[in-house]
């Protein structure tokens, strides 16, 4: 899929662990792992909002479009 999730990069920048982020945004670590691995089919605006709030970033910092 041409949409790449750069959640790992943002987590590293903010020096935050996946488990910590999952707890803050209220999703399971398994679901966060699906999101990080790019296996997710879609992301809810509410989840995106919570991630942006927790990591103090913009949606574009997490999602990137790379042409195949």
């Amino acid at each position: 899929m041409p949409i790449v999730v750069n959640l790992d990069v943002m987590l590293a920048k903010r020096k935050m662990k996946s488990k910590e982020l999952a707890e803050i945004i209220g999703i399971t670590t398994a679901n966060l792992s699906i999101l990080k691995s790019g296996k997710a089919k879609a992301i809810r605006f509410s989840t995106l909002e919570a991630i942006c709030k927790a990591l103090d970033c913009q949606p574009a910092d997490i999602l990137e479009y790379i042409e195949d």
């Binding site: 999703i27 679901n31 699906i34 999101l35 997710a40 089919k41 879609a42 992301i43 809810r44 989840t47």
Partner: peptide, 8 residues
């Protein structure tokens, strides 16, 4: 259902 399950 699968799509819904993979919507985070």
């Amino acid at each position: 259902q699968e799509e819904n399950d993979l919507t985070i």
